[in-house]
Nucleic acid binder design. Structure first.
Lengths: 206, 206
DNA sequence: GCGTAACCTTACGCACGAGTAGGTAAGGTG
DNA sequence: CACCTTACCTACTCGTGCGTAAGGTTACGC
């Protein structure tokens, strides 16, 4: 109607629309018709450019994931101390989520429960968990702790921390007034103080 | 064909089947036909006893939630020290998840992403978060800390801990060889050692 | 200016699955 | 034994939404 636009532009518009609709409705309840309408284009164009509904969702997921990863990577200084790396990473992470509440709250949560995409998401999550586990292991080595630890221990711990971060990201997504910086501080506090105490050999016993 | 069974029995069979199918396929991909088939009964019976698909799912959710709550409540001794209450609660929680991997992994994760049920689940979650926040506040009061804290701080912290626990529950659901007791120990360690250090006034600074 | 390739549309086919109509048989109760 | 209530079935209707066929229109190279 208004203008004929080049493919790359339309594709981004479609992805924007798709993210918005998927996030509002959930994967199944979202209809290709609505996505097309929100994108201001007709349905066959969506199929022509981005493929089937599954492929479209995957494309959304990958775009958002890439952006998130890049945002975090951009915030981190690889030469800094482990705790500062963590701090910078968390700041970038929560800032991103705060700015993309839609994208976060639903794409990641959504993908998790849809069997076809769960694997994809799980793989990304695993990469993050491994990075965090690496940081922990680095800090552990520096602390010259006298206890022994297995790789699985770091992994499980990292797993828990990532879960906590995701949970706080949800909190953030729901509390419009919460400052992402503040959320990052909360997280940093209990992660690092807790981890630090643990690494120094303090253990809880029944 | 085989036997005519009383209503209550059939209802439980149907719920069992529904949980299994919902967990395997996800809410939308699960068909009422398959649920009926797994339950060894015809579809109209499901409608007659448990109502529409939404109502059926809700019934599953509520049954599982109730069981979980009861399992945890049964494990906790209300007169014990806060850390022991937490320990007992966590043990019961992970034991339950370990024994009901199906129910957990999918019902809760599933419900979260389906708009019609998200509210229900969110309410349950909030109740748990508040209990944990209460425990933290109790411990805080006992520690006679000299810093000030707001209710929101405890809530956010509890939120993060619950997220971490859920994350470890997923880990447990995926690692058939992991012992629930061990998972509970992991959790207890970093929650309590971390919280303890925090409550004693140790704070991380940039 | 004219072909052709890229952009874009309307209008459909078709499968799948929620929910129902209408009917059969079992087993208890008088 | 007549009855009625409860358990149970087969066989449909019908909406919804994915994916596509077939055709129109604008821009750009030559």
């Amino acid at each position: 109607m208004l203008k004929r636009l080049p493919r790359v532009v339309r594709e981004q518009q479609m992805l924007d629309a798709a993210v918005k609709v998927f996030s509002r409705r959930g994967f199944h309840a979202a209809s290709m018709d609505e996505i097309a309408e929100v994108a201001g284009i007709s349905k066959p164009m969506v199929y022509a450019y981005l493929g089937t509904k599954d492929e479209l969702f995957l494309a959304c997921l990958q775009r958002e994931a890439t952006r998130l990863m890049e945002a975090v990577a951009a915030g981190v200084v690889p030469t800094a101390r482990p705790d500062e790396q963590l701090w910078n990473g968390l700041r970038a992470f929560f800032a991103f989520v705060g700015a993309h509440r839609d994208g976060w709250q639903v794409l990641y949560r959504q993908a998790r429960s849809e069997p076809p995409f769960a694997a994809e998401l799980s793989a990304m999550r695993t990469r993050i968990v491994e990075v965090v586990a690496g940081l922990l292991e680095g800090a552990w080595a520096q602390a010259e702790a006298n206890r022994t630890a297995v790789a699985d221990d770091f992994l499980a711990m990292a797993f828990a921390y990532v879960g906590a971060a995701e949970s706080l990201a949800d909190w953030l997504a729901d509390h419009a007034d919460e400052d992402p910086e503040h959320t990052a501080t909360r997280m940093m506090n209990f992660v690092w103080v807790g981890a630090d105490a643990l690494l120094q050999g303090r253990v809880w016993r029944a």
